[in-house]
Amino acid sequence: MKNYICYSINNTLNQFNMADTEKLVEQLVTQHGKTRNSLLPVLQGVVREEHFLSDTAMIAIAKALNLSSADVYGTASFYTFLETEPRGENIIRVCKTITCKMKGKQQVIEAIENHLKIKEGETTRNKKFTLLAANCLGWCHKGPVMLVNDDVYPHVAPDQIVDILDKYC
């Protein structure tokens, strides 16, 4: 029989402590309401503050909304922006869809990779940035485009990357 390593919930990679996370969830549930309909706003609220959904957060949300934790996880994992793995403080999403590809998104990604010394999908050591590729961001006439958190950078050029990212440091 395969031996399973005993699992401990993944709070180690999270700079937020359990009590803070639980308090945040409590606030969000108070704000949005204690029904299933508020699940997405609550999940979004946690991601806004903590950049991803730790197990602690999902368990707390499940408890507060009277859902199972698996259900919360299953729902969250459906949505690309509701990350369930640790992410950096700032999430960079470069559009990878065809028109942005045609306009040079690869050079943009490479510029970011060179600057941050990470590959697509990775997070910088100092947890400042995570670099992700995204499906169509809705700026096809102004590609390539990237989002840093909620901020949009249309027509982004590789030589602007350093200046743009510096703003988030």
């Binding site: 065809i98 499906n135 809705g138 096809c140």
Partner: peptide, 11 residues
Amino acid sequence: DEGEPGTFKDR
């Protein structure tokens, strides 16, 4: 929820 690649008019 405009998501179709190539569409950006709703925004």
